[in-house]
């Protein structure tokens, strides 16, 4: 009895090992199952999901106009102080002083891509871009100004 069990053990053990080897052997010979993405080579065809949260950008239209009122809602919504809104006062057409955005400072190095600022913005000025290639040689390059130079607020946005 002991001997039969002993031999059975060996036999079953061998069989289990061979089943495992069958799988690795299958993948060794079937190269179409390979899942590697050759990243820098496939950059041209690589398509990120459009909702992918890669960085915050401000939407500008073709006239270099945006919809940011400088309300600071995004700054308040951000959990880790990534956004700093610096406002200035402009004289509008009627000669009244009006608050407007001067610099929208965005610290990419602090951002956790949590999407809270996007949701908070009442005018949908900012959005998430699916760009993920953020590496730079110097950290200071990660501090970005989101409103383009010379841009101004769209007419009619309050």
């Amino acid at each position: 009895m002991f001997i039969t069990n002993y031999i059975k053990d060996i036999f079953n053990g061998m069989k289990s090992l061979l089943t495992g080897m069958k799988i690795t052997g299958y993948y060794f010979t079937h190269h179409k199952e390979i899942i590697t993405e050759q990243y820098p080579d496939n950059r041209a065809t690589l398509k990120m999901a459009d909702r992918f949260r890669g960085e915050v950008v401000m939407i500008h239209d073709e006239n270099n106009e945006h919809a940011c009122t400088g309300c600071s809602a995004c700054e308040l919504a951000c959990p880790n102080g990534t956004i700093k809104i610096i406002n200035k006062f402009e004289l509008n057409a009627e000669g009244k002083k009006k608050k407007a955005i001067d610099t929208f400072v965005y610290h990419l190095e602090l951002c956790t891509m949590c999407n809270l600022c996007i949701i908070a913005c009442p005018t949908d000025t900012i959005k998430m871009e699916p760009n993920f290639e953020h590496s730079v040689f110097d950290r200071s390059q990660l501090t970005k100004v989101l409103n383009h130079t010379g841009s101004k607020i769209k007419a009619g946005v309050e």
Binding site: A49, R51, F52, R53, M113, M128
Partner: peptide
Amino acid sequence: RETITDIMEETCGARLTMN
């Protein structure tokens, strides 16, 4: 797992820390 993270990426916008 990659298939799942792709689904997450598409709907939630992130692969690991979805929020």
